[in-house]
Design a protein around this nucleic acid. Sequence first.
RNA 1: GCGGAUGUGGCGGAAUUGGUAGACGCGCUGGUUUUAGGUACCAGUGACUUCGGUCGUGGGGGUUCGAGUCCCUUCAUCCGCACCA
Length: 860
Amino acid sequence: MTRYNIKEAEKKWQKLWDERQSFVVPDDCTKEKCYVLEQFPYPSGRLHMGHVRVYTLGDVAARYQKAKGYSVLHPMGWDAFGLPAENAAIEKNEHPAKWTYANIAIMREQLKSLGFSFDWNREIATCHPEYYKHEQKMFLDFYKKDLAYRKESVVNWDPVENTVLANEQVVDGCGWRSGVPVERRKLNQWFLKITNYAEDLLEGLKTLPNWPEKVRIMQENWIGKSEGLQFKWGVVGADGQTNEQIEVFTTRPDTIFGASFVALAPDHPMAQKLAGDKPGFDAFVQQCQSIGTSEAAIEQAEKLGFDTGHTVQHPFVADRQLPVYVANFILMDYGTGAIFGVPAHDQRDCDFAHKYNLPLRPVVIPEGEDPDHFVIDKEAYNGPGKLANSEFLDGMSVEDAKKTIIAKIEEQDTGFGTIQYRLRDWGVSRQRYWGCPVPFVHCAECGIVPVPEDQLPVILPEDVTFDKPGNPLEHHPTWKKVDCPACGKEARRETDTFDTFFESSWYFARYADPRNENSAFDKNKVERWLPVDQYIGGVEHAVLHLLYSRFFTRALKDCGYLDTAEPFAGLFTQGMITHETYQDSDGKWLNPTEIEKSEGGVCLTEKDQKPVKVGPSIKMSKSKKNVVDPEEIIKAYGADSARLFILSDSPPERDLEWTASGIEGAWRYINKLYRLIAEAKGSLPAPGTTIPDNIGEDAAALRCVIHKTIIGVTTDIEAFHMNKAVAKIRELSNALGDFKSDNNDDFCVLREGLETLVMLMNPMIPHLAEDLWLQLGHDIPLVDTAWPQADKTLLKTDTVTIGVQINGKVRATITLPADADQKTTEDTALADPGIQKAVEGKKIRKVIVVPGRIVNVVVS
RNA sequence: GCGGAUGUGGCGGAAUUGGUAGACGCGCUGGUUUUAGGUACCAGUGACUUCGGUCGUGGGGGUUCGAGUCCCUUCAUCCGCACCA
């Protein structure tokens, strides 16, 4: 018997799909559209298993929808700007553009070898001027609409390298290359007003039922809407008067009588004003700044304060003045950059109060506690309760007290009830080379001047060097020099480039019209394809990329580019790929190819048979060397095996553990399927033969399995339960393999089963499916064949087997007619010899009967 | 610190609205075929057991005739936190 030649077959079918242009979609198709999109890759050099997973999932969805009769848009492109290209430039002395395009060429071939159903005619690369020129235009439009502006903001500054560092380049507060502590520096940078859309972005989440609940919750928390009170505290001056004011925002105005202190962000203007000349203040601010800019680092740092020596007057208690501190955990970007601290009811304030010996005054008393004896020590109380020690608020609920205080403050005209969002405006400036240039000019006379549209695009110069630290655009001899578009005098080009999230915020729309030279995309084409019906990507993008894209869609709508409200109607977030880790006796990490497993599961180095320490299965990473190269896997087992293994076992939203035995199992199954059909095809009737009525009992049972499997696999694919779909396909193939008959009529059922099997596995292992489809005698390739339909009349079974419990534990099973009523079910259950024996000598207190499901006999 | 998730055999995981826990696969054990190995095929495989049963879904408690599923509590692990993409 001929064996399945994986390599040849896969190449053959890829070529056929390519020649037939099977996945090229016209814009004017009359069929209903379906847009399936996976997050596009950064061209890092080679495909990794994570890529294979996400594109396999997308391909299953796309091929399935195509079989269902949709006109499926399934494009691919490259998120091609970014930091790694610059790192490669520095390390390997290779130009970022050359490096990037070379990587794209490699990865494109790797993707093609996996047989994905991409419409390659629509391929884009974001580093191409034909792509980024449109986003320069967008930025100018945003600027006109007041959605883009400049302000000062803080960056990580490496004083040795003279560069801005990304958070990931800061390790333990020090620059990754220089090793010296990073500084926080203020720079004037470009921002996009995402906060204008805070409420709409929040509300819009309600229109996305096909997003994972967890992602919606994460976005909701990220936007962080909170209602509260913004009001002013008077700073007590030398003359006892309150001339200076500190404005604070609080979500707990009800606890105002419990306030013990007021705290300012280190970079709050009032901080400098009140304590600027105090000894130790500059050192304190510097210490705060050494923490870095990441929120996690700031929140996890020890809570530290600097006493300004000034006090503020409590608004309702005449003889209470509170100390004013500068504290490292107050963020200038949130609220007003100042808070009042209530140690009894906020854990951070509580820690702070213990450190600086500030009073704890409980003002919210939980139910059942006596206000006079309720004390707070190390644990702040932030639950519900009744107000106490709060004068006119005493006895009120937290909610009522909030309303009362807000009304009172508004009456006094020292503040107002307001809504704050945690969401901050999006800083899009990067002091880097490999990104889209910001189309602006700085003129000494005219200030910030947009580059006129007829002078776009501002092209990134290619003749740059990476021998000096800092932004190569700054060092470029001529590029910066430009005449002011407004006054014509000598001016300076903006050298900041955009955050790479900028490119990925609209690429899904560009795919609708990828070759448009005059505009980002034609409105009609975008409206034809958007929103993306099924978007697939890593959960690590749950907040930023998805939120920025949702913001862009709104901003573009306001600028007249499109009418779509939300870019991604459906979202699926897939898990990571993990692998065991291996270390030799010296602790050196080993790649899976460097080890071998002997009998008894002992692990040895392949080279010299030395013992290997096997570690837990963790995310594949270069540093731990626990990576498997997809190209090697495809070479050894073929694309279908890799795809099948990825889809088997692990639910797509969870982490997938890559194992050698797993891929081998998938490979064996591919060969088994081939044999199954090769062995059976000789005895099958011709394609299209109708199934007669007088088939045997086994054949009828098989038909039931076949049609159940159609329903099961269809529901599973729709729900992204690919592992379950694979299991059901395997069950069907087991049933088909077990099927024996010498009746020619029954072989019609076998043909139906095998054809169904092949059609159901097509989205997952399309090369093999095409091959088997041909062997089953079909001229039209499977790629152009419709999804099978289940005949529901075949699903009915005559009998049903249910469990019989004694006190909730299954003691027997009984088989009875599917339509047996309550009485029959109960009688049959009690007549069962096993049950009779079990209840012997015991009193039957109750019998619970759920026909078709269960019988439970309660005995004492 | 804040936010989000996950815990079921030796392993990955199944289990409609609470109703026969362990589908499907990996691994393992025994056997068959083959010149031989990989392959393929057949049988077995949650634990304990005095072979009657008993115990089993991270731990503890609760609701129910019945809980992997619902409620409370606790432990462990993983992911994100605004300049990685």
